[in-house]
Design a protein around this nucleic acid. Structure first.
Lengths: 238, 238
DNA sequence: CGCCCACTTGAAGCAGCTCAATTGAAGTGG
DNA sequence: CCACTTCAATTGAGCTGCTTCAAGTGGGCG
């Protein structure tokens, strides 16, 4: 085992770090540890002091915020190449939410300060990070728009379509299976609704042959119709 | 009139540019034009090609997105020191929304590319921008949480409290007036609800003596109670 | 085998939306 | 200065999408 050179090799493969000078990557790699998280395992908890930044090698994770009233809201989901905790480390506050793996996930972990130092020396990396944050803000705005203007049905359809792209696995019969454990409760937290409403919605779709679903899993048979529902074009003229 | 040196002076006063080397500021100032927008005037429209970045000197502005179904959603509001359009220019796409002044506003406008160039040469500025974006993402997450988990009443109260801090002006009688034209429709778009619901809510608060309101204006008499409502502690035991 | 837990289903209630009719106040023009 | 227009705001009534509470089902795992 050579953990550091291992980290070094993995870092070099991440798009975010393409074209970054070797010596800088070496410095990062020195402080980097590879970690593995099973489904349900937290990377950090809401209120923990923010120190560590994570880069996702593979897997699927989410960031959840617990409200004062006891509800959980999923703020974002992450896949390969995504960075978790960057902005919080930057602002030197506590983590505003809990990050946990939804699927078996491989991540690289290192002190935020180091990424920070490297960024100040390398404009390219700073630009990449800024672009990444820009994308995240864009997604956040999309969710605000959806939560403000769309119905639960639409939002659930939308989140399924997104999951389709992120963790969809084609089945022998042509359907696409979501390759993570995904409970009704999870879908509810993603869409600002209740598990009962999700259950009723999925049941209705199952009866129309759009999906098949079981305990903590969803298989999409008819992605096209799902997209129509997401765009509110289902059952409309035209 | 010396528009460029004028811009130079204004730039140097903005916190974002404190400590940035003079020559860099000069380059920025060269390309900068000061512009003034009256209430209701758009800085840019949704779909316009993004080229210009704005820095707010004074005033109050908002970013609105129009949904496919014809509803408008206010994504963010801006005051002195805020930067508008930065991320969009960065991603070289069209503006995803319309930016318009709510109050008489003074802004500096310059091509995004230039700010971009300056940032790649000056780590400090890059850090400042990143922190600013971090703050914006934080706000966006807060709104997602609120839209997901809170009721309309709470959200309206919350947005009034925010406006209190941003554009509140103390009156002789101790109340605080919001120093912008703010219609029920505006409040509805800020909170993902309808103007009728806003109207009923404000009427109820007016009867409790918490606020006074007229055509496109709101005066807050009892900020404390408003905060309680925002936190859902109003009418609760304790 | 039996418990656990995700899920389903029902029924009731209500928060907020929609549609619609007025009101009232601030401009505008004669 | 008054009549007219315009547009924000109010108010009512009905409805519905969603939540809430509650009871029951079934598959998987110890």
């Amino acid at each position: 085992m050579e953990p550091i050179s291992d980290s070094r090799r993995l870092l070099a493969q991440i798009p975010l770090f393409q074209g970054i000078p070797g010596p800088l990557l070496d410095r990062l790699a020195q402080a980097t540890r590879r970690r593995r998280f099973g489904p349900g395992t937290p990377l950090f908890r809401q209120g923990d002091e923010a120190q560590t930044v994570f880069v996702v090698i593979s897997g699927y994770l989410r960031l959840v915020q617990h409200t004062a009233e006891g509800k959980d809201v999923t703020m974002a989901t992450f896949g390969a190449g995504d960075v978790i905790g960057l902005l919080v480390v930057l602002s030197e506050e506590a983590y505003p939410g809990t990050a946990e793996a939804l699927a078996e996930s491989d991540v690289l972990a290192f002190p935020g300060q180091i990424l920070w130092d490297v960024m100040s020396e390398n404009g390219l990396l700073a630009v990449r990070v800024l672009r990444m944050i820009a994308g995240r803000l864009h997604e956040a705005h999309a969710r605000i728009r959806e939560l403000s203007a769309e119905r639960v049905q639409q939002r659930i359809a939308r989140s399924l379509v997104r999951l389709l792209r992120q963790v969809g696995v084609k089945q022998p019969d042509g359907a696409i299976r979501l390759d993570i454990r995904l409970s009704r409760q999870d879908l509810a937290q993603l869409n600002g609704t209740t598990l009962e409403t999700v259950s009723r919605t999925l049941t209705a779709w199952e009866q129309r042959g759009i999906i098949e679903s079981g305990r903590e899993q969803v298989v999409v048979r008819d992605p096209h119709t799902l997209v129509l529902i997401a765009e509110d074009l289902d059952t409309l003229p035209g």
